[in-house]
Computed example of a mutant assay.
Amino acid sequence: MPTLTKNKQAPTTGSKGRPRGGSSRLSLLLKVVPAALAALVGLVLLARWLRDVPAVAAFLSDYPGEYDLPQGAPVGFPAWLGWQHFLNAFFLLLIVRTGWLVRATKRPQGHWTRSNTGRFRTRNAPTKISLNLWLHLSLDALWVLNGIVFYVLLFATGQWMRIVPTSWEVFPNALSVAIQYASLAWPTENGWVNYNALQQLAYFVTVFVAAPLAIATGIRMSGAWPKDATRLNRVYPVELARAVHFPVMLYFVGFVIVHVTLVLASGALRNLNHMYAANDGDSWVGFWYFAGSLVVMAVGWVLARPLFIGPVASLTGKVTR
């Protein structure tokens, strides 16, 4: 298959024939990276200074970073939570990748048109979409299905008590944890028994705010939304969905980066055992499960291309290149 270019116009070049786009990006990185590092150093120094202030030291003593969970809260992590964690990470990785490709690709390498016969027949005429968008929507459906299973198990087993705040003490404790993290002095904790307050707030927002927002805005932007619902479209315009959907994606990317960094920096083996091996030990079992999950994600990343997804998409529609 011939390679399609996004733009036939030759790139703008400088006086020595070098593309200006690459040099401008390099120049931006040379400015942003040192500034970001300087800001991080300043934040650490500020946090360390604050910890020596008597009032702040007393605050950290009164609010060490966590509060007691409700009576009957489960201890530890069941095996199903490890599988859910992997599947959510796997789907999110490919959803973000395909979503970015849908946003950035001007000339897709393939398109898909839904079949309008047999069990796929509907009153709405089929619309041609890119293969990237087809994969994005398909992964969304799997992610939502996995999320439904997650919600059911979360409330059926009482695990919700670990990520839903049940006391106003969560806020001062979360501030305390933020200061401790910023000063590079990790709070004393055991996630097997109880998350710290900042983790709890982050997980709550991710599960009960960001995920539903991603679904609600994604449905509004998809072809499944009724186009002839004038009043409903006026109340919930597609422009609003687009304005929210992309920042939610950025939130997920930022959450994953911070989450993985803290998992590896604050006791990697024990944390990976919690997440992947359902035990509270310091063995290498969780690490190897984690390494295997990375291999699966890498394979999924490679296979998420028109060459491989085209035959699958053709089972429910017509694929054109």
Rank of each mutant, 00 (worst) to 15 (best):
L4P: 00
K6P: 04
N7T: 11
T13P: 00
K16R: 13
K16E: 10
G17W: 05
P19S: 13
R20C: 03
G21D: 07
S23V: 10
L26W: 08
S27Q: 12
A35T: 14
L37W: 09
A38P: 03
A39G: 11
V41G: 11
L46M: 11
A47S: 12
L50E: 06
R51S: 11
V53G: 04
P54K: 11
P54F: 03
S61Q: 13
P64G: 12
D68T: 15
A73I: 06
V75G: 05
F77D: 02
W80N: 04
Q84M: 13
N88Q: 14
F90D: 00
L92M: 14
I95M: 15
I95Y: 00
V96E: 02
R97I: 15
R97K: 14
T98S: 14
R107A: 08
T113K: 12
T113P: 02
T117Y: 00
F120C: 02
R121W: 05
A125E: 14
N132F: 14
L135Y: 00
L135D: 01
V144G: 03
I148F: 07
F155N: 03
G158L: 01
W160G: 07
M161F: 04
V164E: 04
V170L: 03
N173Q: 06
V177I: 12
I179A: 08
Q180C: 07
Y181T: 10
A182L: 12
S183D: 11
G191A: 01
V193I: 12
V193T: 15
L198E: 06
Q200V: 07
L201C: 11
F204Q: 05
F204V: 04
T206S: 13
T206I: 05
F208S: 02
V209D: 01
V209A: 14
A210T: 09
A210C: 07
A211Q: 08
A214E: 05
A216K: 00
R220W: 05
M221P: 05
G223N: 07
G223H: 08
K227V: 10
R231Q: 13
L232P: 04
L232G: 13
N233T: 08
V235H: 10
L240E: 04
A241L: 02
M249S: 09
I257K: 02
I257Y: 04
V263E: 00
L264E: 06
R270F: 00
L272M: 02
L272V: 01
N273M: 04
H274F: 15
Y276H: 10
A278Q: 09
N279T: 10
F287R: 04
W288F: 15
A298P: 00
V302Q: 07
P306Y: 03
S314N: 09
K318Q: 13
V319S: 01
